[in-house]
Design a protein around this nucleic acid. Structure first.
Length: 201
DNA sequence: CAATGCGCACCCG
DNA sequence: CGGGTGCGCATTG
């Protein structure tokens, strides 16, 4: 794993820088986009942005950094930030949900190959695969199911997640934002924070 | 101007 | 409901 390099810098080191940058950006409550990450790293190391961008890609490829697609844009995360979920499979396992999630996270415009999806899943989960079971075939089956449910589409040899069409149907139920009457608790909180401010002046 | 801080709406389990 | 996320704007360096 270790001695691969880019511009004379060890990939592990690149990865470390990436995670540091991501952490920093996150504490600022900002989106760890490629641009911000590149920018953050540049504050400490003098590299061309393209070089850093490539290093970021590499880090994603080897799983040091997780690339997800969220609200229309790419976001990079520290995989360690999210505890790895265990995934036990059997021949009957339905991984369609996992596949769709993976496809969405990969966020490739023209969909992702089953291979990359498999790779991503292996990096994202801790898989327990019984000896007599072949992950690829389980995935292929689950893929069909996901497509049948309309959560995934086939694009050539690739698969792409269908964006969730939040049907207009039920909408008024989970919008307690509107007709809120007098909410004692939130009022109390507001009063408290006001007093707090007042005291600090 | 760049970097950092943060309220709060939004989302998802 | 509880916890994460990140926009948009404020504040600081």
């Amino acid at each position: 794993m270790g001695d691969n390099q880019l511009e004379g810098v060890d990939l592990d080191t690149w990865g470390k820088w990436m995670l540091e940058a991501i952490k920093k950006i996150r504490t600022q409550k900002q989106r760890p986009s490629a641009e911000r990450i590149i920018h953050a790293i540049r504050q400490h190391h003098n590299f061309h942005e393209d070089v850093i961008a490539e290093a970021l890609d590499q880090s994603v490829k080897i799983g040091t950094v997780l690339k997800v697609f969220n609200k229309g844009q790419s976001t990079y995360k520290d995989p360690g930030g999210v505890p790895i979920r265990q995934l036990n499979l059997a021949k009957t396992s339905d991984l369609s949900k996992v596949i769709v999630k993976a496809a969405r996270e990969l966020g490739e415009r023209d969909g992702s190959s089953l291979k990359s999806i498999e790779k991503h899943i292996q990096l994202t989960y801790e898989l327990d695969i019984p000896p007599n079971i072949d992950l690829s075939s389980v995935l292929r089956l689950s893929t069909k199911r996901a497509i049948a449910r309309g959560h995934l589409v086939k694009k050539g040899n690739n698969f792409k997640a269908v964006e969730e069409v939040v049907s207009s149907a039920r909408k008024k139920y989970d919008s307690p934002k509107k007709d809120q009457k007098f909410d004692f608790n939130s009022t109390l909180i507001k009063v408290c924070s006001f007093l707090k401010m007042y005291c600090l002046c």
